[in-house]
Design a protein around this nucleic acid. Structure first.
Lengths: 346, 346
DNA sequence: CTGAAAGCGCTAACAT
DNA sequence: ATGTTAGCGCTTTCAG
């Protein structure tokens, strides 16, 4: 197919009988140069008649800004889309961006490219700045990009690195979940993590669990923790293993609803009932959590807000506002009480 | 923050002691102009040393192409992210795009903008073409865009419109689900749709259900169909209502797993068991389907492929290849047998 | 094998 | 109040 013929500002100028500049002024609503109403109308009419649309590529060329934000996913696609967390972040992100006239370029890490191609996004000026989710501590390109002054905001945190970030309060949320169980009288509380511990979020949730235990005078037992890795399958395995320990825990905190789905199935297969035989609390509050059997009590994660806040932070950085230091925002979680937890009986 | 200083091809040329043109040639691997290996290396070295990155905006300006695909969501954000269907489409889309050096601009319909802003994407040259999911028959802008020669591919179909599309074989899938139930001996089979009937996919699934019934000599009964609207809540309501009819259907086809989640809960609340008292078959095969209680038998929807194929179709259109007519691709579904269906007993 | 020069469509400083 | 003009950084004929 041939390239479609473009109508340029020049064409509009010609039809309206004015200069290209005048066209630019009226179309961009530059009021400084008080243009006569008559001319204004002529230009507007000509533009409408020719079905003129300004070419953003040319505009970017001269303004130097793209008005595009890059959303880069540092995790594998399967992992990124294991549940609705990232899609919801993306949603918040793009709504915040749209509100300020920005667009979002979606950049997952391509399977064939183990290395970070995303630095090109800013180096080659595809975007004005990037929001990166799932940062890794060994990501050299990320650190370099930041050092070189690129506008970067993280979703998730990197220890000992001063890049602005927004994250959920994982420690607080996990503490809240564990305290809730303790409040119900449970003393032997198992943990299934959402992921291996080299994921910051996972380590933080473990830490919150541990804090709650110790604050209540309960001892932290290695033997009561198992490791999930994002999937229901891993939750099934982890819970099966936890079900072997004696005495059996009376409650378990599964630090991801998706993983909890597998745990739920393992408990059913073992012939135990929830919450009668064992209480279960999740983390994330996936949209389906209320429709599981039993409806899952869990910690709500503000995924949409995470995206929204990250975009706002990046945008204010791009607009040259001083970012209030520390350039970090920790979003609060809250408990959603449903039916998977009961008072301890043993 | 000040704009970062850009290194231009001019700078590289200066350092390498050649002209700008030469730089362009070696960096773009133009072999026609057989450049001496020595010069080549000098240029490459200079570029590396200066950390030079070509400016895509300038390149787009002159080549006239952006190498960006727009993914526009014609449904509301909540609906778009009610489950993992669209995220998976996006994933397939962007992988197919990346493989050919294209990027994806994500454009959900903004809540504040009831009207279609997405036409700007192509008119203002943000992208080379768009993939639009969830087309509506009354979308004037879409029809105009297509008439004007813009490169558009639909995910989902529009009756009586010749825009290229890729879609899942909804009729076939629904027929397959219903036939499976019939094969199990069921004769009274209810239907809960995934959405209101003005959604093409919904109407098609109803049609497949009806075809299967009639082919088996069973009559289609209005009284056995209820309408979902994407959510588990709607499935709950629909199933509750279906549970009132007498004689009770022995099986029901819920044309969306997400909706089926609510249906499952309604059946539990009614004190009935699955599949002993009533068989249930879903549609979509969401990633969690195998971990529900009972694991849900359902029709698998190739979401990733849908995105992939749509991108491939758009790309070949952009590359000027004649699209094999009809410019449409219907992807096959398949049955995933799990544990929510049993032989009819009544 | 390499360089000069035109031009993509727009914005914005400057001149009238 | 409106027009002239100079780029933005790159690709790509066309001459040497």
């Amino acid at each position: 197919m041939a390239t479609r013929k473009r109508v340029t500002a020049q064409d509009v100028a010609r039809l309206a009988g004015v200069s290209r500049t005048t066209v630019s002024f009226v179309l961009n609503n530059i009021t400084d140069m008080r243009i006569s109403e008559e001319t204004r109308q002529k230009v507007l009419e000509a533009a409408r008649q020719l079905n003129y649309h300004p070419d953003v590529v040319a505009r970017r060329m001269v303004t130097g800004r793209t008005r595009v934000l890059g959303f880069v996913l540092r995790q594998s696609p399967e992992q990124a889309f294991a549940d609705l967390f990232l899609p919801q972040v993306l949603n918040g992100l793009s709504q915040a961006a749209a509100r300020q006239g920005y667009q979002v370029l979606f950049e997952p890490i391509a399977p064939g490219h183990p290395n970070t191609m995303y630095a090109r996004l800013v180096n080659e000026r595809h975007v004005d700045g990037i929001i990166l989710s799932g940062p890794r501590f060994d990501d050299e390109d990320l650190l370099r990009l930041h050092r070189e002054g690129a506008a970067v905001v993280l979703i998730g945190r990197l220890p000992d690195v001063e890049i602005p970030y927004v994250d959920v309060d994982n420690v607080g949320g996990a503490r809240m979940a564990t305290e809730y169980l303790i409040g119900l009288g449970h003393r032997r509380i198992g943990l299934v993590t959402n992921a291996p511990l080299f994921y910051t979020a996972s380590a933080e949730r473990l830490s919150g669990y541990r804090q709650a235990l110790e604050a209540a005078g309960l001892s932290f037992e290695e033997g009561l923790v198992r490791y999930g890795d994002f999937t229901p399958q891993s939750g099934y395995q982890a819970m099966m293993s936890l079900l072997q320990v004696r005495p059996l825990p009376t409650a378990v905190f599964v630090a991801s609803d998706t993983v909890a789905l597998g745990a739920l199935q393992a408990i059913r297969h073992a012939g135990l009932r929830i919450p009668d035989d064992i209480s279960l609390i999740g983390f994330d509050d996936i949209p389906l959590a209320g429709f599981l059997d039993p409806p899952l009590t869990t910690i709500h994660l503000p995924a949409f807000n995470l995206g929204w806040e990250a975009a706002e932070m990046l945008l204010s950085r791009l607009h040259g506002e001083e970012i209030p230091s520390p350039a970090a925002r920790l979003l609060a979680t809250h408990l959603v009480e449903r039916e998977s937890c009961a008072h301890a009986r043993r």
